[in-house]
Every structure is written in C-alpha cells, then in structure tokens.
Amino acid sequence: MHRRSILRFVACLTACLTVAAPCARAQSGHVLRLSTTTSTENSGLLGYLLPAFEAQSGLKVNVISVGTGKALELGKNGDVDVTLVHARKLEDKFVAEGWGIDRHDVMYNDFIIAGPVADPAGVKGSHDVIAAFRKIAAANVKFISRGDNSGTDVMEKGYWQQAGTKPAGANYVSAGLGMGEVLNMAAEMGAYTLTDRATYGAYKAKTGLAILVEGDKRMFNPYGIIAVNPAKHQGINYQGATALIGWITSPAGQAKIASFKPEGEQLFFPSAK
C-alpha cells in the first residue's frame, strides 16, 4: 500500500512538471529584461514610455538601471535581452564583438556642467566645456565624478584628457554612483559635476544646483538601443527585444519621447532614422 502511494505521488508530480514546464517558458516569454542608464530611469522617461509599450505588446519590462558600462556587461553575460545606453564607442565595440545586434539610434539630449549658484570657479555662461574644465581644475573647488564607467563617466574622462589636467587630490571625488546620487553629493559638498540635462532636471528642485556650462557641441549625448545576440546565450527573449526596438523607433514611440516634458521642458529629442 505504501509503495502504491509513492508511485501515485511520483506519477502526479511528473504530470504537474510536464504541464508546468511549458507554462514557465511561456511566462518567461512575456518578460523582457532591459538594462539601461540611470538617466533614463532617474529622469522619469521610462516610467512615462514603458506602460504604453507594455499595453500594446503584452510584455512586462523588467528594468535594470545602471551605468552604460555595466548595462552592456549585463548584455554580454546574457542577463538581459536588450540594452538602451549612451556611449557610442562602447556600443560599437559591443556590437563588433558579437554580443549585440540590431543597434538603432533612439534619441539624444545633452550634457551640462552643474554646480553651486555662487560658482567659485567662475565658469558660468561658458559654452566651451574644455575651457570650463581647466578653470575648475585650477580653482580650489571639488568636482564629483560618476566613477562608474557609465556613458557620462566616459565622456567626463575624455574632457579631462582634452583639458590636460583635472582637480588635484581630494578635490576630485570618484563616487562610483548613479547620476542622481552624484547630484545630491555635489549639492551637499558645494561641488561641480558633469550631468545629463534630463537627470539634472529631475533633481534640480532637490539639489538647488545651477546650470553653469551648456551649449558646446561636444556635449551632445546620443542614445542607442541594442538587442542582445541570441546566438550567444540560451533564453534570450529576442522576439521581445525586437518588439521594443520596433516600437521605440516607430513614429508612435518617437512621438512619445518628444512629448515627455516634465515641467514643460523637453528633455529628450527623438533621432531614429
């Protein structure tokens, strides 16, 4: 009797697993894993865009918001299905090495230098980012760096390289944090930082930091979306990635990006071709 009970239990468990396995696979097909930069999350853009895509596609998008370097690394490891980032050299390398496919331009915004209203380095009103960086380095002021291999961090390091200098010693703080946290640090320490305009806009009221340098063409900040190559990893939701790429670069998706205007200001500009 005991043996028959065990056999019935095993048979029942096997039947349940047989039914559950395809259900689990089907459920996973309805989830799309997106790695992206802190700027798209902190600015509120994704919270504005994704519900419309989810309603149309039936997909649930799980967002991992990190710096561009980490976002691409997640794609490389097969931990996400698609990535939305802003560091063209790193993006091109990701695709050239075969980790990503189907890269498309999505939108752009720009970088600014934000800092204390008092502006002790005297850079306010400049439209030359390199000259402004030199003045910040020469002044006895603090500069907060992302220090996280994000798109912003890569751009900032390039500016210091072009400037041929950077703040000395304790005046240069490598935070290893996201943009919102860095803006909060800059406000607390009376420091300067390089930020994308969108995240600055989301944190402006909280930090009280001022826009001091803007308008240099070298501060242009384009974003691209890339599907993770399904040939590199099993379980990549390539169909879902393709659906998101198609939607965000479509006239409807591009119009949705253009209509994102917190406090009446457009923060991202569509650029899909």
Rank of each mutant, 00 (worst) to 15 (best):
M219Q: 11
Y203W: 09
I225C: 01
A227Y: 00
M179A: 13
N229T: 05
L32V: 07
N171Y: 08
K217D: 14
W160N: 00
R218E: 13
E54I: 04
T152C: 03
F133C: 10
L46F: 15
Q254I: 02
A118G: 07
G151K: 02
N140T: 07
T37Y: 04
V141R: 00
N237L: 02
M155A: 14
D79M: 15
R146S: 15
A252N: 08
R33K: 15
L32Q: 02
T195F: 05
I211P: 02
S174C: 10
A87T: 09
I248W: 02
K70Q: 14
G169F: 15
S57R: 00
R88M: 10
G201I: 02
D92E: 12
Y48N: 07
R88S: 11
G29T: 05
G246W: 01
E181K: 15
Q254T: 03
P270I: 01
I6R: 12
V182T: 14
G78W: 04
A131K: 13
E91C: 08
T40F: 06
G235R: 09
V141M: 01
T38Y: 14
L267I: 03
I211T: 15
T249S: 00
T249E: 06
P116C: 08
G147Y: 08
L209S: 09
V117Y: 10
A118P: 00
H86D: 12
Q27Y: 11
W247G: 06
K204D: 08
D110M: 07
A186L: 03
V63R: 06
F260E: 08
T242Y: 10
H127K: 15
N42W: 09
V106E: 01
P116N: 04
E214S: 15
L13A: 15
V117A: 15
A205C: 00
T165Y: 08
M1Q: 13
I101P: 05
S259M: 10
V80A: 04
Y203F: 14
A114C: 12
A87F: 11
A272W: 02
V80N: 09
A272Q: 05
N109P: 09
T207S: 02
L46Q: 10
F9G: 10
E265A: 13
N140A: 12
K135G: 12
N229M: 08
M185V: 05
L194D: 00
T36D: 08
A121Y: 06
F94I: 01
S150E: 09
A202H: 04
G158P: 00
G100Y: 03
L72Q: 01
F268W: 03
I130E: 10
R4Y: 15
G44R: 03
Q266H: 06
G224M: 13
V129K: 13
A131L: 13
D128W: 06
L17E: 05
F268N: 00
L32P: 00
G246Q: 06
V63W: 09
P262L: 00
N77I: 02
A255D: 11
C23Y: 13
Y48G: 08
Q56M: 09
G169L: 12
T18F: 12
Q161C: 07
L72R: 03
F94A: 02
F53H: 01
E156R: 11
P262D: 00
K166A: 13
Q56D: 04
E41V: 12
A272C: 05
F9A: 15
A198K: 03
L7W: 14
E214H: 12
N221T: 05
V123Y: 07
D148E: 09
F260P: 04
T249F: 04
L17H: 11
R146C: 08
Q27T: 01
A138P: 05
